[in-house]
Simulated assay, not measured.
Amino acid sequence: MDHSTSLNFSQLSQEHISRLKDAFQMIDADGDGAVTRGDLREVLASVGKPCGDADLERMLPGSGESLGFPEFLSLMSGLSGEFPEEAELRECLRVLAAGKGQGDSLTVPLDELVQSLRDAGFADPETQFAKVFKTFGATNKTTGVRVFRGDSFLATISDT
Rank of each mutant, 00 (worst) to 15 (best):
G103C: 02
P109E: 14
F148E: 05
K141I: 03
R118T: 12
L73P: 02
I17F: 07
E57H: 13
N140A: 09
I157P: 05
S158G: 01
I17A: 12
G81L: 11
G144S: 11
R41K: 14
R94L: 01
V108W: 00
A97C: 04
S66T: 10
K100A: 14
N8H: 11
E82T: 12
V145A: 11
G33L: 07
P125E: 06
E42N: 08
V35D: 02
A34I: 05
A54S: 09
V147Y: 02
V35L: 04
F24N: 00
R37Y: 09
F72N: 03
E82G: 00
I17G: 01
A138D: 10
F72R: 04
D111N: 09
L44W: 12
L117A: 10
L12T: 07
G121Y: 08
C51N: 05
A98W: 01
L96W: 09
R118P: 00
I157K: 01
T5Y: 04
A155F: 09
V95N: 08
G68A: 13
K49D: 02
S80T: 10
L154E: 03
R19I: 05
S10I: 08
G144N: 15
K134G: 13
H3S: 15
A123N: 11
A123M: 05
P125Y: 01
L56D: 07
R94W: 01
D104N: 13
T142Y: 04
Q25R: 14
G64V: 12
G137F: 01
L79Y: 13
Q128D: 15
I17H: 06
T139C: 04
S152W: 04
L12V: 09
V108M: 03
A54R: 08
T107G: 00
A34M: 12
L113G: 09
E65P: 00
A29P: 00
G64T: 11
L60F: 03
V43E: 06
G81Q: 12
K49L: 10
D30M: 07
D32R: 06
D111F: 00
L113D: 10
R94N: 00
P50S: 04
A34F: 15
L89W: 03
Q128K: 00
L79D: 03
S74E: 06
A98M: 04
T107C: 12
E65F: 07
G64A: 14
S116T: 11
F83N: 01
A98K: 04
S66A: 15
T139Y: 03
A34V: 06
S77T: 15
G62S: 06
A138H: 06
G101Q: 11
G81W: 13
C51F: 05
R19D: 03
